[in-house]
Simulated scan of single mutants.
Amino acid sequence: MKISTKGRYGLTIMIHLAKQHGKGPTSLKQIAKENKLSEHYLEQLASPLRNAGLIKSIRGAYGGYMLAKDPVEIKAGDIIRVLEGPITPVEGIEDEEPAKQALWLRIRDAVKNVLDTTTLKDLAEHNNDQPQDAYMFYI
């Protein structure tokens, strides 16, 4: 399973909003600027996140976006599913032989487990100074 820029940038938006949780709305312009991303692209991602009830928009001069729930209630899997669709490593696994089908299901379940046990709070509080484990880059 490969996560596209939709999923990656969607997580960027959500992590930024989690870090600002309780401090009021944040504009997509600010998020785009701080992360060197296209504001227009982030606007396209905000709509499905809002429709899914993960973020809410605040209108006005001091408006922007904020989380619709506490960061501990939002899982990475919620965000990825909204932007990427169902979590599946292989399409049409029902047509695979049983041994391969079992492998694909184990991979799917492992990925789901990581995504569904990692909260937005976990991601927002992650210390960027800590060295990353090599396995994280090869999932």
Rank of each mutant, 00 (worst) to 15 (best):
I74D: 02
V111P: 01
S27W: 00
N113S: 08
L28A: 09
A46L: 14
G63K: 09
R59I: 11
G24M: 07
S57D: 07
T26Q: 07
V114L: 08
P71H: 08
R59E: 14
E73G: 02
T118Q: 08
E94A: 13
I58A: 07
L67E: 00
I107M: 10
V90A: 11
Y62F: 10
K56A: 06
A134C: 03
N128Y: 11
N35L: 07
H40I: 13
A61H: 11
N51M: 05
R81Y: 04
G63T: 13
R106P: 00
V111F: 06
K69G: 04
I31E: 10
L28F: 09
G92Y: 09
N113Y: 13
R106N: 02
V114D: 05
K36A: 14
L115K: 09
V82L: 09
A76F: 06
E96C: 11
S57I: 11
G92M: 08
E39A: 09
K112R: 11
L103D: 01
I58C: 03
I80N: 01
E73I: 11
N35E: 15
T118H: 12
K121A: 13
E94N: 14
Y41I: 02
G53D: 07
S47A: 10
Q44E: 06
I80L: 03
P131F: 11
H126R: 03
G60A: 02
K33V: 14
A110I: 07
E96Q: 11
I80E: 06
V82K: 06
I31G: 04
Y41C: 05
K56F: 04
V90S: 05
I58W: 00
Q132T: 06
R108Q: 15
K56D: 04
A124T: 09
K100A: 13
K121G: 02
A52E: 07
D70K: 13
H126I: 06
E96F: 03
K29H: 09
Q44F: 04
D70R: 12
R81W: 04
I87T: 02
G63H: 02
K69S: 08
K100P: 00
Q44G: 07
I79S: 10
E94C: 04
R50N: 02
E73H: 05
G60Y: 01
R59C: 00
P71L: 03
G77M: 05
L28R: 12
E43S: 12
L42S: 10
H126G: 00
G77Y: 10
E97M: 15
I87M: 05
V72N: 08
D116L: 04
R108P: 10
P86A: 04
E73L: 08
P98F: 01
A76I: 15
R50E: 12
G53H: 03
E34C: 08
Q30T: 15
L120C: 04
A134E: 05
N127H: 13
K36E: 15
Q130D: 07
E96M: 14
A134W: 14
V111M: 13
T119N: 07
A110D: 04
D70Y: 07
Q30R: 15
V90L: 13
L123N: 11
G63S: 09
L42Y: 09
L103T: 11
N113V: 03
A102D: 06
